[in-house]
Design a protein around this nucleic acid. Structure first.
Lengths: 150, 150
DNA sequence: TGATATTAATTGTATAGACACGTATTAGTT
DNA sequence: AACTAATACGTGTCTATACAATTAATATCA
């Protein structure tokens, strides 16, 4: 299952750029599937997990919805609805922002923090297992990704 | 906007593996957004585009739904419904498979081929524009991605 | 001040991904 | 032949992405 060609049964690509784009899309699917498997028992989607992580990073300081959106990996996502799902599960709280009543302050609850730390135990070794690269190769690839986006 | 840290406003990562995974997710979103912009005028989603490409690669030989599924970048996707959308737009045809009546043969129509070749004109330079790497770097990264998945 | 523009958040709608389940058809086995 | 297993495809449901539109609150400025 190693090579991309084998995985998607395509013999050749127009050029290295085309192949790289396809490879990135395919590898993304590989990673997200693995993430899903880990988070499933916690009834969290990767996106919900990400939002909780962002909120925990605030150390109790309330964050607005748009600030969460800015920090999300997918800029076209919809933080408002994700927060909604998390609120229903009582993992976050909404508070009216007194300074600007258009904004809504979001804080992670104790239940949210607990769930996140439980997840962490399982997620700890996840990246190292799924990413079959050396540390140096991982660093090299991160740098290439930064360069790719310009 | 270069570095990942800046883009998602996260100061540090647990280790290079964690950073790489996050970087891949973020870069994926960057690529898909760009793809969407190009395909929008043609009323095609990246996934529908991919299915049409797979079908064209068959050179007129009918393909079953499960065969399309196997070649898709996202293995958890739903080829059946994607084909349905393409059929509504008359870009593909379904034919009952005489050899095995469980299967459904899919063929791209002339209208589908025309649309795909129109797209191609715009997609031609896409990868090279969006991926700001040298050819050698693109090849290096493709190899690293193959290795990443093991 | 009052009209206008901008911003924050939510909502609507279409498409797609994740995954379980149902149904028809074929393959395999005794 | 009859029973069972496997396969191909479709459907249902929930979640998320993409993007336009709406609403309420604040900022800007003539």
């Amino acid at each position: 299952m190693g090579s991309l060609e084998e995985a998607i049964k395509q013999k050749e690509f127009k050029d290295p750029y085309n192949k790289l784009v396809v490879n990135l899309l395919y590898t993304h699917s590989y990673l997200v599937s693995a993430q899903n498997k880990i988070l499933k028992p916690f009834d969290l989607s990767p996106e919900q997990f990400n939002v909780l992580r962002i909120l925990r990073g605030q150390n109790g300081v309330p964050t607005t919805v748009s600030s969460i959106q800015d920090r999300m990996l997918n800029k076209m996502s919809n933080a408002s609805r994700l927060v909604d799902k998390l609120k229903i599960k009582q993992l976050v709280e909404r508070r009216e922002c007194p300074a600007d009543r258009r904004q809504v302050d979001i804080v992670i609850t104790d239940k949210g923090l607990k769930l996140l730390s439980d997840c962490q135990t399982y997620m700890e070794g996840f990246n190292n297992e799924v990413v079959k690269l050396s540390e140096d190769e991982a660093i090299l690839m991160s740098n290439l990704l930064d360069k790719l986006r310009g």
